[in-house]
Design a protein around this nucleic acid. Structure first.
Lengths: 175, 175
DNA sequence: GTCTATAGGGTGATAGAC
DNA sequence: GTCTATCACCCTATAGAC
């Protein structure tokens, strides 16, 4: 609260005047940060597009949003791991099973056409999110290991934007 | 310190008797958790094996170690993001440039033979680590979203152990 | 609305009895 | 070695002046 007050150039007491408690302030920030991230993702995945187009769109959407808020993933995952129950209640609205079911149908159709190898929808989505989100989670470590400044990190991410979708599509394509 | 003392069924004072300060205790735990993880990884990557074999070995090593300490990634990344300088000093020993350089040579050789598409060594390593580490980082969220218990999560990881290496190799192979 | 002052509770660390 | 008691500090939250 002190840090936030300092950054806002106001007094700690004023934060409590506006937000009542640290907990309520946190929830407001969390909702904003986390926000409709999942919804917009689910929307693309459930949409009516060819599989490869869909993968490209999800990757582009992911990297675009994450580039705007590079610290969001570690903030969110951290909070979820510290307090799983609270978060889960927020996710009840998202029809995960339905979205996964639809996506699996689309995958199965492509498999039958001989275009891709069989894969579970959940595994493919985890793969996509892994490749998009992990670099942001590991940003401080990557920057340290590869001696990158913020500019170079952003450049690497932009390179990935182009490469990751191709990597995923190749990963599931039949040879 | 209170939580640790409780778990250890001893008094807080005793922790200070043995570890002097919270900071020193933390460092000991961190070194143990983090430990030779990077070293053993670098060893495999710098080793003298065919590229595809190497990828399979790294994935197997990763998932094996992470399965033993599923909370390690979020703990480590969290600490690195809170305090990058401290961690970086620990990683000075690892000859990142050399390992990356060797790996890039091996990749380039396979590209010239027409076996794989061109890719930067760093990007490939990030891809591998993404696919291996992210599911553990997102474990609480995945468990919530996909309504998995710990057993089902472990089963999913075991499935990935077999699939991720193939996914990566297909991702870089020429068609 | 915005501030200062302070209550109330928790935390890291130490002193000192046993 | 292991404990209790306690100090000094910091943090959330509130009371009350302006």
């Amino acid at each position: 609260m002190q840090d936030i007050a300092d950054h806002a150039s106001v007094n700690k007491a004023l934060l409590h005047y506006y937000f009542t408690s640290k907990d309520k302030l946190f929830n407001i920030v969390f909702e904003q940060e986390f926000g409709n991230f999942f919804s917009s993702l689910a929307q693309v995945i459930a949409s009516d597009q060819p599989l490869f187009e869909k993968i490209k769109k999800v990757v582009a959407l992911d990297i675009e949003k994450l580039s705007q808020f590079p610290d969001m993933p570690i903030f969110v995952l951290n909070e979820v791991s510290r307090n799983p129950e609270v978060i889960l209640s927020r996710l009840q609205n998202i029809p995960v099973e339905m979205v996964l079911g639809l996506f699996q149908q689309q995958i199965n159709a492509e498999v039958e056409r001989g275009n891709i190898r069989p894969i579970a929808a959940g595994q493919l989505l985890v793969n996509i999110q892994s490749l998009c989100v992990f670099p942001f989670l590991a940003r401080p470590m990557l920057r340290g290991l590869m001696k990158m400044n913020e500019e170079e990190f952003k450049a690497m991410i932009q390179l990935r934007k182009n490469e990751v979708a191709e990597f995923i599509i190749n990963g599931i394509k039949t040879n």
